[in-house]
Amino acid sequence: MPLTVQKISNGTVIDHISAGRGFLVMRILGIAESYSDRVALLTNVPSKAMGKKDIIKIEGRLIDKKTADRIALLAPQATINHISNANIVSKKLVEIPSQIDGIFKCPNPKCITNAERVTTNFAVEKNQKLRCHHCERLFAAEELVA
């Protein structure tokens, strides 16, 4: 029997997330135990294009461009669908940003940004790897979100 999740009437559906990355995308969205609205995370959903994919449905919340770009670091093929009155009102592909400011903590314990209050900045290099503006170390996106 297929596993089904109710359609949402207002909110966002993030589709085509690389399989297994849904949990990390939830972190980027800041969705944790205390979140009060309905959220569904479906993982390893069969997909023609991707083999398997993850899907996230969030009721009552629209995803802004900045958040969408951050999702692109983990799931470059993701699509963001905004839903209003049970209809898709916009469908967008995510775009990998060239810079990320002030969101992620640098995983390098010896980085000055972990000793002093300063806005972190990461430049996005090849393969969605991120280089810290301060300590110049290169990290995979998962390392920053974890």
Partner: peptide, 10 residues
């Protein structure tokens, strides 16, 4: 000269 990485950039 500083023991932490990125100090000079900061």
């Amino acid at each position: 000269r500083h023991p932490l990485e990125g100090a000079a950039r900061l």
